[in-house]
Amino acid sequence: MSINTEMNVRVAAIDQVAEKVKRFRFERVDGSPLPVFSGGAHIVVAMRDGDILRRNPYSLMSSPHDQTAYEISVLRVEQSRGGSAFMHEHVKLGDQLTISQPVNLFPHDVRGRKHIFMAGGIGITPFIAMMDQLHRDGSQFELHYAVRDRNHGAYWRELSERYGNHRIKIYVDAEKLFIPTEAILSNQVLGTHLYVCGPSGMIDAVLGKATSLGWPKQNLHSERFLAPPPGHVFKAELKRSNKTITVGTHQSILEAVEAAGVDAPYLCRGGACGQCETSVLACDGTIEHHDIYLEPEDKISGKKIMICVSRVKGQAISLDL
């Protein structure tokens, strides 16, 4: 028996907070309070786009203890697979959507003596909720936030006003201001934790720098926004369900499985949490592993696949689903 804990919400506000960034506010349709959550948590928003059911994860950015509404921010991506475009162009005030319970795959380490956040662009969103929580708890933190230009950057003004310029540092690409990672990381007290969220290149650069400065991996945390990459069309046999489905160019295996009415477990839909790990029974082609969850030897073995982001280059795959 599985319990359906999804929640029906109504769009209570939509704000254009920066170029290409909209903030959505959700209230529960039945008026009951939303669950409290922990900073860094995300929800999965289900959108009915014609025949297609899209499910996209978004970080919660509202105050974690505020049970009246949840807020998320959505960046309009140029090469959108449909989710961000749908949110930007089709979702209107008063519309109803279905959201999951909050899931936190990017929590802060509660033992930390100090917390340093580094955000690039829309990667700011989880930190807004985390800072709210740390501020209430009286914990030490600072934010270093890189934006392309002042119009594209969301929330930097509000955050500076709320927490002060001593804690909130803004770096604007267009003004040739960049995060001085080495200087920031060189003199932090032992027991400090670093959190990075933004484009993959930025995360790799910051974590690489921190490691070269002697930061142990236990003190480094990051969250990547991995969208399922497009690829060739292939067939997937779902052995236990006795079905064969086609996975489209802009569709993940998980999305194709759901479209066929088969239930598969998931949490992050971004290749990080491990929940959708599926056994591969046979594969005619090679698996393109895009996740950051499986161990290298598991990827080489070809026996496991994370169906939320990984796909097949070839004809078909047979899955234990």
Binding site: T5, F37, Q101, L267, C273, G274, Q275
Partner: peptide
């Protein structure tokens, strides 16, 4: 452990 790490709120 693998199962519990992904235990969800409300479930």
């Amino acid at each position: 452990l693998k199962f519990l790490l992904n235990l969800q709120q409300g479930k």
